[in-house]
């Protein structure tokens, strides 16, 4: 299991390849499900120029660990990778990567969704959008 907060842009596909190559479960994993979340240049009808993502150092990692532990135990996962950006982000850049490895596909598919939904409600991150004429804090996540 690897959980990391990133202050710089990352390429999720390179990250997945590197992590998979180094993983000890390589010969046991029959399935890997991934989710990649990226920044849009629009929200609620407005153009979004850039975004700032704030987190609560220490608590964010701790809560992500709790989420990943619970879902891993529930679904018997072999491994999980979670990367999440913070700081200033531009449209098109990745915000989050979740990878779940398991022996069979159902556990990987289900777990990837469960981890993402829990992350969006329990891991302390906050988005502030820079629009064309003002800034605003995002008050709620999109339903899904």
């Amino acid at each position: 299991m690897h959980i990391e907060i990133r202050h710089q842009a990352f390429n999720p596909w390179h990250e997945l390849e590197a992590y998979t190559r180094s993983a000890s479960h390589r010969n046991q994993a029959g399935a890997c499900a991934t989710f990649v979340g990226s920044m849009r240049d629009f929200n609620e009808g407005d153009t979004v120029r850039t975004m700032h993502l704030e987190h609560y150092p220490g608590m964010t990692e701790k809560q992500l660990g709790v989420i990943v532990d619970e879902v891993s135990k529930e679904n018997g996962l072999l491994d999980v990778l979670v990367l999440h950006r913070v700081g200033d982000i531009n449209p098109g850049e990745e915000i989050v990567l979740v990878g779940c490895w398991s022996s069979h596909r159902k556990a990987a598919f289900d777990s990837c969704r469960l981890i993402m939904e829990a992350l969006k409600s329990k891991a302390p991150f906050w988005k502030k959008e820079k629009l064309l004429d003002r800034e605003r804090w995002v008050s709620r996540n999109t339903p899904g």
Binding site: H55, H84, I95, V96, L119, K120, A123, F125, W126, K127
Partner: peptide, 10 residues
């Protein structure tokens, strides 16, 4: 003791 608004990550 920390106070914060609803979460909007991911």
């Amino acid at each position: 003791v920390a106070f914060f608004p609803p979460i909007t990550g991911g």
